[in-house]
Design a protein around this nucleic acid. Structure first.
Length: 600
RNA sequence: CGGGGCGUGGCGCAGCUUGGUAGCGCGGGUGCUUUGGGAGCACUAGGUCGCAGGUUCGAAUCCUGUCGCCCCGACCA
């Protein structure tokens, strides 16, 4: 490709003010993407090439393990999503799905994911165990109405994703395929030149028995990963389980009521009353909203030095009730409190708060659901809210063993904690960018959408399913986050838009020009992805652009053209080879092979 | 949704406090010079100052409303 005639670069000199993180800035500066609206980007020619490289790597690995590519619609009828009972949750609860009505008033959603569509199709085409297993995948734009799009392609409202769905006749077969796809994922990310960590994860709104996320570790990551040094354990903080540190025993000389005026936070109480956070039980109030059931108020109790994990809390409440749980939200809003509660001492609540605090005319459940985290349940003497404004209380010999209290794990594991499986190790924490997620769905969707097959025994059974996602555009940006320097992007060669860029320093020089054409054609004939910067600009401009857009190799054609000598420069480590043109191609090929091997 | 910030040529910004009819740098175009690290000089094109009301003789500037975007938080596969 020639920059002047077929491949304009579109680099910009100033960093657009909208970009906060380096990878986003470089994508904009390098002319890879242009913002059209909040969370909506155009993929410019350079970007498209990167997307195509990543897609090709994904396709190769998935085809290798017998997956089949197809393309599904993006406009989904609401009916289908109502069958799986996700319509409400996706349009009113989390409201992540863009939705609209057609001219007849029929409802549609713009697909954030495709379980419903693929399952309904699978139910039509799969009849017998003899057809199983099967795995279909596609690479396509997804739509999600993110609460706050940010960081360019990292969290955008329109993004490209590979999503795959597998169908099995048994749970065992699903499990073995799940492992196979996990291995394929590792190959894919390695082939993309990315360093990733696989972690246990919460399966969230997709649902299912278990799931694993693939993370690119980076400081700007939006997820927290907890892991042990040895690699014996790694999990997303949403899912991670640990053993909390030992509480500091409370001294004997404290008892009864504590007057705690204006002391609403754990830290204030500790400071003013000479207590340790582990001696306090913190009570956080939530409201669980269901699709067709009255709202349920929750008292979530946890040791003061620990934090509530709202994902675990959500999953727990979801498990307790058959109705579809839409959301669990902290009760803070004064209007909501006044409308539904009476004598409600926010900030001074204890685990034994009276059910009478819920107003009779409220449409809430008339009983608090009291959930006690393990960290709190083993304390018998502790300080907690006195259920009276400006008062806390020392609870003595208190027992949570009554059936009013559900003792569960609703706690965030944190760094420094020990884990069950290995006494010697403590958890460390890093930030990560989620670029892949695989789920064992089980029969959740096949049951709801009635996707059955005839098994060996002649019985009709629900299909076992897995689903597997990779954020294609997110990989591209994560790769930049992991591979850049002061000058710009340093693409891993596997996913670079071009392998090499030819930079003639002075096109007015006839010798240079001829040599340039000769080398360019030579590379083209050898099917090497080459970009020729044939702009009539000063050399410096072209050097800067080449570095910014991050092509792995540069060929500089300059003064030594007269001796048939050029320079081959490696972008990443700045290695320079001064070589004669007849050795250029073979040197390039061997050097790029080295680079391929380093990255995989 | 709460808090903060910003909307002025393609990009980055100044001007706004104290109203007087829009400016700088980069980028674009033309010409000459220059040519291995974002060149120099000269000329040039390009903006109803987000939008709508209001105040005023006069509004980018003051007031009201509204829309949009960005950041932090809530929240979020």
């Amino acid at each position: 490709m020639r920059v002047t005639t077929s491949f304009p670069l579109g680099t910009i000199r100033d960093t657009p003010s909208e970009a906060e993180i380096i990878s986003h800035q470089l994508l904009l500066k390098g002319g890879y993407i242009r913002r059209v609206n909040s969370g909506i980007y155009a993929y410019m020619p350079l970007m498209l090439r990167v997307i195509e490289r990543i897609s090709a790597i994904i396709e190769k690995e998935l085809n290798n393990i017998g997956c089949t590519k197809l393309l599904l619609p993006q406009l989904h009828p609401a009916d289908l999503w109502k069958k799986s009972e996700r319509w409400e949750g996706y349009t009113t609860g989390e409201a992540i799905m863009f939705n609209l009505k057609d001219r007849q008033g029929k409802e549609f959603g713009l697909a954030p994911t495709h379980e419903e569509v693929i399952t309904s199709i699978a139910s039509e085409i799969i009849n017998s165990y003899k057809q199983l297993p099967q795995c279909y995948y596609q690479i396509q734009t997804k739509f999600r109405d993110e609460i706050r799009p940010r960081f360019g392609l990292m969290r955008s409202r329109e993004f490209i994703m590979k999503d795959g769905y597998s169908f099995h006749s048994s749970e065992e077969d699903l499990t073995s395929f799940y492992k196979k796809i996990g291995n394929a994922y590792e190959n894919i990310f390695k082939s993309c030149g990315l360093k990733t960590v696989g972690v246990e994860a919460d399966s969230g709104a997709i649902g299912g028995a278990s799931s694993k996320e693939f993370m690119v570790t980076a400081d700007i990551g939006e997820d927290s990963i907890l892991f042990t040094q040895s690699g014996s354990y790694a999990a997303n903080i949403e899912k991670a389980v640990s053993i909390p540190s030992q509480p500091i025993p409370i001294t004997d000389n404290i008892s009864g009521w504590l007057e705690t005026p204006q002391q609403k936070t754990i830290l204030e109480i500790c400071k003013k009353n000479n207590l340790d956070p582990s001696q306090i039980i913190k009570v956080v109030v939530f409201l669980a909203t269901f699709e067709n059931k009255s709202d349920i108020p929750i008292l979530a109790c946890i040791r003061g030095d620990q934090h509530i994990n709202e994902v675990k809390l959500f999953n727990l409440i979801d498990k307790l009730h058959s109705s579809n749980l839409l959301k669990v939200k902290k009760i803070e809003d004064k209007i909501i409190i006044e409308k539904n509660l009476v004598n409600f001492p926010l900030g001074f609540i204890g685990p034994d708060l009276d059910n009478e605090t819920i107003k009779a005319d409220s449409n809430w459940d008339k009983k608090w659901t009291r959930i006690i985290d393990y960290s709190a349940s083993c304390l018998s003497k502790f300080v907690s809210g006195g259920n009276k404004i400006n008062f806390h209380k020392v609870f003595q010999e208190f027992s949570f063993s009554s059936k009013d209290y559900l003792i569960e794990d609703i706690r965030n594991a944190k760094k420094g904690d020990k884990i069950k499986i290995d006494d010697n190790e403590i958890l460390k924490e890093k930030k990560g960018i989620e670029i892949g997620h695989i789920f064992k769905l089980g029969q959740k969707y096949s049951e709801k959408l009635n996707a059955k097959f005839s098994d060996k025994d002649g019985q009709l059974k629900s299909l076992w399913m897995g689903c597997y996602g990779i954020g294609v555009t997110r990989i591209a940006q994560a790769a930049i986050e992991q591979n850049h320097d002061q000058k710009g992007i340093c693409w891993p060669i596997q996913i670079a838009p071009f392998k090499v860029i030819i930079i003639p320093t002075n096109l007015k020089d006839l010798v240079q020009r001829e040599l340039t054409e000769q080398i360019y054609n030579d590379f083209l004939i050898n099917k090497i992805d080459v970009l020729l910067d044939d702009r009539d600009d000063r050399a410096g401009v072209k050097f800067k652009d080449a570095e910014l857009i991050g092509i792995p190799f540069q060929i500089i054609i300059g003064r030594d053209s007269i001796n048939k000598e050029v320079e081959l420069i490696c972008r990443t480590n700045n290695t320079k080879f001064k070589i004669s043109t007849d050795k250029l191609l073979e040197t390039f090929i061997s050097e790029s092979k080295i680079m391929y091997n380093e990255n995989s």
